[in-house]
């Protein structure tokens, strides 16, 4: 008999992500679990260290605005066509969060080191940049196989938690991520992965080779929650579109502290109903 997935409610899932955890999140164009982000804000999580794989968007802006974040390790925080992320920008200008600016391939590579269980990984580029100058955890070393060839060493990046959304999962905890394979890298690298899915389907995703190639095995999944439209107000590629009207409303409100509080009250704090779905 195959091991079954640990099915959680959205609030149970949020309770499994402790204060101070290093949490890896995907960018807005991948599969983001906004429903889990709202549950985290409701449970008043504190001191998170967010890792953007490789960048962050609405999820991070909301968590920062709600005071849940201490540290940001990311190549960027962007709301793409909606402009600068207002809560992120305000928090950095007030020096309220610890920034660990990175560049995209450094995050991918450092996660790959963790995936392989090796202590560090070298990366080209970066030398002479202020990204490197501010990253005390990165070092410039020698290429041991050549003369006079400096190269940047990145320590393995091991998130405590990868938090992702996906179109489908099954009762064994297998999760199909399609072409968003960085979400597979995140699951491989993190100690635990929590996932919300649009639908838990019948059968075993691993039985179909076409699906299996893009499926994270249940081995990596610590908990799974079924959440229809769990990415809302973002969309999911191949599924539903982002709710542009709502995102614009968020951006307008989040320009001020008061506006953001109003947004939280209206769409996050007083909507426990989504937990019961």
């Amino acid at each position: 008999m195959l091991m079954l997935a640990n099915k959680l409610t959205i609030d149970e899932l949020a309770s499994r992500i402790p204060d101070g955890a290093k949490v890896a999140l995907p960018p807005d164009y991948a599969y983001c679990s906004l429903t889990a982000v709202r549950a985290l804000i409701r449970r008043k999580v504190k001191g998170l260290h967010l890792v953007g794989v490789p960048s962050l968007g609405f999820q991070a802006d909301m968590l920062i605005g709600a005071g849940c974040v201490d540290t940001l390790e990311t190549a960027a925080v962007t709301l793409s066509e909606f402009g600068l992320a207002p809560r992120f920008t305000a928090a950095v200008k007030r020096a309220e969060i610890n920034m660990m600016d990175a560049t995209c391939p450094a995050i991918h590579a450092a996660l790959q080191a963790s995936e392989k269980g090796i202590p560090f990984i070298p990366l080209r580029g970066l030398i002479g940049s202020d990204i490197l100058a501010h990253r005390k955890d990165w070092k410039v070393g020698d290429n041991p196989f050549a003369e006079n060839d400096p190269v940047v060493y990145l320590p393995a990046l091991k998130p405590d938690v990868a938090l992702i959304h996906a179109p489908i999962g099954d009762k064994y905890g297998n999760v199909w991520v399609g072409v968003r394979r960085e979400q597979m890298l995140m699951a491989h690298a993190a100690s635990e992965t929590f996932v919300t899915v649009e639908e838990i389907v019948d059968g075993n995703l691993m039985d179909d080779l076409k699906m299996k190639a893009a499926t994270i095995p249940g081995l990596y999944i610590s908990g799974i929650t079924e959440a229809k439209k769990g990415a809302w107000p973002l969309g999911i590629p191949g599924g539903y579109n982002a709710d542009h009207e709502h995102l614009q409303r968020y951006v307008d409100l989040a320009k001020t502290d008061e506006g953001f509080e109003q947004y939280l009250k209206e769409f996050v704090l007083e909507t426990p109903a989504e937990a019961a779905e």
Partner: peptide, 21 residues
């Protein structure tokens, strides 16, 4: 100042690598 900037933009994205290669 990086620690408390006058203006903050999204971030470096892939530039710290792609510009080199």
């Amino acid at each position: 100042d990086y620690e408390q900037p006058k203006a903050r933009f999204p971030g470096s994205f892939g530039s710290g690598y792609l510009y080199f290669v």
